[in-house]
C-alpha cells in the first residue's frame, strides 16, 4: 500500500471507525487500541480486498466488527460497558462543548450501555459507517427491512432510556 493511499484511507475513515468502536466498547483507551488494530489489519489485508466482492466500507467494517468481537471475547464482563462509557473524560465538557452537550453525550452513552449487544452493534454500524441498510443487512446476515425495523425499535428504546435519565 502506498503511503499516500494509506494516509487518505486513514484520514477518511478514522473518525467513522473510532465512532463505531466507541459506540461498541465505550472505554476510550480500548477504543484507541482497537482502532489502531483495525487499521493494522487493513494494512495487512489490503491486498486481499476485492471490489468485485464487496464495497470497501463493507469490507472495512467487517474488519472492525471482528476486532471488536475479539476484544469482547477477551474482556467482556457484564456491566463493564456502562462503567467504561461514562468515564470522566467522556463526560467532561470541552471548551467548544457546552455543559448541556456533555450531559446529552453522557446520557447517550448510558443509554447505549443499557442496550443489548446486537442493538448496540446495529446502532454503531448505522451511525458510523454511512452504509446503506442493504449493505448493513449483508454484513449482519439479515434483510434490509429487518435492519430498518430493528433500527427504528432501537432508536425508540434509546430515546425512552434517555428520557428516564
Amino acid at each position: 500500500m502506498q503511503t499516500d493511499r494509506f494516509e487518505l484511507l486513514f484520514d477518511t475513515y478514522y473518525g467513522r471507525i473510532f465512532r463505531y468502536v466507541r459506540y461498541r466498547v465505550g472505554d476510550l483507551q480500548a477504543t484507541e487500541d482497537i482502532t489502531s488494530d483495525i487499521f493494522l489489519r487493513v494494512v495487512e489485508n489490503y491486498h486481499a480486498y476485492s471490489a468485485e466482492k464487496s464495497a470497501f466500507e463493507v469490507w472495512l467494517f467487517a474488519i472492525a466488527r471482528n476486532a471488536v468481537t475479539d476484544h469482547h471475547r477477551q474482556t467482556w464482563r457484564n456491566g463493564s460497558w456502562l462503567a467504561a462509557a461514562v468515564d470522566i473524560e467522556s463526560a467532561r465538557p470541552s471548551p467548544e462543548d457546552g455543559a448541556i452537550a456533555a450531559e446529552r453525550r453522557e446520557y447517550l452513552y448510558r443509554a447505549l450501555g443499557a442496550l443489548r449487544e446486537k442493538e448496540r452493534r446495529l446502532i454503531a454500524l448505522k451511525f458510523s459507517s454511512e452504509m446503506k441498510n442493504t449493505e448493513i443487512a449483508g454484513l449482519l446476515g439479515i434483510s434490509a427491512s429487518q435492519v430498518g425495523v430493528r433500527l427504528h425499535r432501537t432508536l425508540r428504546k434509546i430515546k425512552k432510556i434517555m428520557e428516564r435519565l
Binding site: F18, L28, E32, T35, F39, E89, A101, L108, K126, F127
Partner: peptide, 20 residues
C-alpha cells in the same frame, strides 16, 4: 437523537495522534 448519534463528540480528534 439521530443527529446526536451522528455527531456526538466521541473524543476521536483528541485521540487521533495517540491512535496513529
Amino acid at each position: 437523537l439521530r443527529a446526536l448519534l451522528l455527531n456526538a463528540d466521541t473524543g476521536a480528534e483528541n485521540s487521533r495522534a495517540r491512535v496513529r
